[in-house]
Design a binder for these strands. Sequence first.
RNA 1: GCCGCGGUAGCUCAGUGGUAGAGCGCUUCUCUGAAAAAGAAGAGGUCGUGAGUUCAAUUCUCACCCGCGGCA
Length: 308
Amino acid sequence: MGTRRRNHPKIIVVLGPTASGKSDLAVKIAKKFKGEIVSADSRQVYRGMDIGTGKVENESSKKDVFIHQGIIHHCIDIASPKRRFSVAQYQKAAQKSINDILKREKLPILCGGTAFYIKALVEGISLPEALPDWSLRKELNKKNKQELYSMLRNLDPERAKNIEKDNPRRLIRALEIVIQTDKPVPEIKKNYQYNPLFIGTKIDREKLNKRIEKRLDERLKQGMIDEVDKLRGSGLSWQRIKSFGLEYKWLAKYLQKEISYQEMHESLLRDIIKFSKNQMAWWKNDPGIEWIEKNQDALNLVKNFIKK
RNA sequence: GCCGCGGUAGCUCAGUGGUAGAGCGCUUCUCUGAAAAAGAAGAGGUCGUGAGUUCAAUUCUCACCCGCGGCA
């Protein structure tokens, strides 16, 4: 995830697969080193999605402050599930949060499982300014990937060289940029603004799978089905709810009586496990991450890191 | 016990007289405003068992074993 920048402000990044104990560790670090937490989770940004996204409990009575165990959490509940949220919005929100934390002379602790969000923030990647244009996307979606690819080859041969030519979603985004800006897709620029310490919470596969299953059953008992039902009641379409994936997708199917409880449980468990493997794919070969098994090891790492 | 249907990849199933395919799963990989998204590559099978016919059987024939349904 990039190199450390010695002269930049220090931040801690706690990452790892779902159910590996990130939130717990982040709170411990925050308590010990006067920190605040910035969530890096593409689903926890949405209000009303709590149990299914594994949000920690909010103790705050104020509307726009999220506090858990006395620790301020940022980038949670910052968006309506009715509106689309994206990595660029996250990047801005998280940068602002971190800068505020630094101004208060506290330690920023980025914590979450969405690798793309973490990358966008830590590397400060420059996302093209072209805004998503949903009507254009809808139009382009009618074309097949060969047509999309040849369009891109005509408009921006350079980008066409490197892009995955079988991936319609990427092709459409590239075309969107070119059509909107009337310029080729800009080369990606990185702008490191922080000096991060990456801590990964690691648990062996078999144990993690068991934890995932246990946690799923707990969440079901805690009223996760009801939560999805409420989202529907608040005016979200089933299609939208399903687009959030995992628990939202499978519980929506179950609530619509498309599948039985058992099918829901099996498929959901399988997909969460698959998801956790996909998360690890981003990190497992990254030499810059300190993988820890005990929280105490992480606290020691942070202590040394801050001293330097 | 009799009749019928079935037994092919981990699962659900296509298919063919010239030693086999799909979807899902699995493994690995990618990541430029949907990322819990979107995509790529790969590994898996002596086609239930035994015999017969044939140059050649997973495919046809017979017997047996197993599963499902019906009848007794």
